Amino acid sequence: MDYPLLNVFWTTMWVFLWVLWLFLLFRVFTDLFRDDSLGGWAKAGWTAFVILLPFLGVFVYLIARGREMGRREMKRAEQAEEELREFVRTTAGAGRAEELSRLVELKDHGDLTAEEYERAKAKVLAA
């Protein structure tokens, strides 16, 4: 059980750097294959470069395409947020104010009695 504290520190640091490297490699491949501006041959070339010369390939990719990498990620995040907002907007349906205005219109047209209107209004306001 002879494992000095400095060796624990170095081992921890190397494991951290290894995980960091794998995360960076995964991030580069994710960006590479999500990018619609690159053709198939360009993606194959970058993939071969990153696989054959991993450290140099990743660093060159980050230098050459790093700025656009961030922009593409922001664009994807904004698009996902807009899709979520649109989904919520369409599935949430009408708000209480719209429902109440429809009830008033139905009452004004004579389709609802005053008693039916009050029950429906109470139901809308309770929801």
Rank of each mutant, 00 (worst) to 15 (best):
M1D: 13
M1W: 08
Y3A: 03
P4W: 12
P4E: 13
P4F: 08
P4V: 14
P4A: 14
L6T: 11
L6M: 02
N7A: 13
V8P: 01
V8Y: 04
V8E: 15
F9Q: 08
F9E: 07
F9K: 07
W10Q: 11
M13R: 12
W14Y: 08
W14G: 01
V15E: 00
V15Q: 00
V19D: 03
L20V: 04
L20A: 11
L20G: 02
W21G: 03
L25Y: 01
F26R: 03
R27P: 00
V28Y: 04
F29E: 05
T30G: 00
F33S: 09
D35G: 11
G39M: 04
G39R: 06
G40P: 02
G40L: 09
A42H: 09
A44S: 10
G45V: 03
A48K: 13
F49N: 13
F49V: 10
V50H: 04
V50G: 05
V50I: 15
I51R: 14
L52E: 06
L53W: 05
L53V: 03
L56I: 15
G57Y: 12
Y61C: 04
Y61R: 11
Y61M: 04
R67I: 03
E68P: 01
E68M: 12
E68G: 15
M69S: 04
R71V: 04
R72A: 11
E73Q: 13
M74L: 08
K75Y: 11
R76S: 10
A77R: 13
E78D: 08
E82D: 06
L84Q: 15
E86H: 08
R89S: 01
T90A: 06
G93E: 07
A97E: 10
A97K: 10
A97P: 00
E98W: 00
E98D: 12
E99T: 07
E99V: 06
R102Q: 13
R102G: 01
L103Y: 05
L103K: 11
L103A: 05
L103R: 02
E105H: 14
E105M: 14
L106Y: 10
D108M: 10
H109W: 11
H109N: 14
H109G: 14
G110E: 02
T113K: 12
E116Y: 09
Y117C: 07
E118G: 10
E118T: 09
E118H: 09
K121Q: 15
K121G: 07
K123E: 15
K123G: 07
A127F: 02
A127V: 02
